[in-house]
Design a protein around this nucleic acid. Sequence first.
DNA 1: CAAATAGTGTCTGTAAGACAGTATTCC
DNA 2: GGAATACTGTCTTACAGACACTATTTG
Lengths: 237, 237
Amino acid sequence: MNEQDFLASYNRRDFLSPLITVDAVLFTYHEEQLKVLLVKRAEHPEKGKWGLPGGFVDEVQDNCLEDTVLRKLKEKTGVIPPYIEQLCSVGNNQRDARGWSVTVCYTALIAHQVCEAHIDSVDSVIWCPINEIAQQSLAFDHHELITQARERLKQKSLYSIVPGFALPEVFTLPELQHVHEILIGKEIQKKSFRRRIEQADLLIDTGEKRAERGRPASLYRLKKASADYRFIRNLEF
Amino acid sequence: MNEQDFLASYNRRDFLSPLITVDAVLFTYHEEQLKVLLVKRAEHPEKGKWGLPGGFVDEVQDNCLEDTVLRKLKEKTGVIPPYIEQLCSVGNNQRDARGWSVTVCYTALIAHQVCEAHIDSVDSVIWCPINEIAQQSLAFDHHELITQARERLKQKSLYSIVPGFALPEVFTLPELQHVHEILIGKEIQKKSFRRRIEQADLLIDTGEKRAERGRPASLYRLKKASADYRFIRNLEF
DNA sequence: CAAATAGTGTCTGTAAGACAGTATTCC
DNA sequence: GGAATACTGTCTTACAGACACTATTTG
């Protein structure tokens, strides 16, 4: 049999394949906290529980896995996040009552402001502070996925400024530093932090300043390249 | 409908799900080169081409995705590699002629010696030098997977000694350095390399030495913890 | 002895840690 | 002026790069 005949006679429905879904751990920074997007499950299984946004590949709409996860996130937040990265895939026979199932999980970051209006108008979507996640009962193995995503983001905060994508488009250096501090779980010397960022030339100074209390802080914007920049020397933790 | 009824009436065969496979990029170091394990495809599609070892989840035998990939690697090499790590998942409608397909790809490392006998007795399995991969025609998107795996391993060589798992159980420091140099694509100062490894306390000195030409080199073994150790400061590249 | 390879001593350069100091706002 | 916050100066420390030097083997 040649390949053409093989393909003509091949029918995917003849084979039992694991379920495959896509999930996202979407982080934002708001009210001085890291928060994760949770969605109330409208359908079985785990109906009524909170869980990560995600779902099945739509073979017509989606050209690749990232299309699927971005489509799902857009449905929930109204917008496409500016940073997304594949985290890992988890597949086994226990995680879903329907049987052997695989999820491809992504980590994404977004500014709270840009999806605020949309999320407030949808009562099945919330931003859950990362510190309160542990008390939540979540669907499937979504606790573990969030833990892994957070751990990866912590690592990134040691050698990149990727966490900046969780901030509003325009932000101050102390805000950026604070996101990193939350992730690392300890304070960073502000001098060290500023030096790194200045030398790497990762931010655009808007020229504006913003004051809440005390001296006003300069406002910055992330350069495009900042998603990919890696410091050769890590912060300690 | 409650969850129990839902599950009782649920049948995975009612839904069309993407094909899902698992692949591995298995590296070793031999004859002063990095090599990748390739397998000649015995079945359609892409029958007769070389490709990465991998295949479908066996829902009975495999408890998780890693079980699947380790089972496949064991079939091809006769042994379980001492280092394995999930690389990424790739899913789209173009990579496999059978339709929308997802692969979960792993990077693994093994000592050449431990699978030598087994592989030499199987004519459909070869170690292909990494420099000759580009000239090979490979199945599916396996070229890209190998490129990504190599890139990841290069990054690891800057801040870990994970590449050491591609060496024999007992090896010399110049050998370990050479693997890193191949991956990074440039020479490393031997003083720097030795200092890092000594300070991190990652190796066990066997007390033995081995000479080929010149002064004999001390022989070392990797400590268990060396798979997870990360230097806080990277080598330059 | 020379050639070859393993391994060390030591200087320089760079960037992070520590922390005290100054600057700019509001009241 | 004082409180609060932003930002800087500068010393110390850790560690990678560079490279010349010594050590141990074979022939």
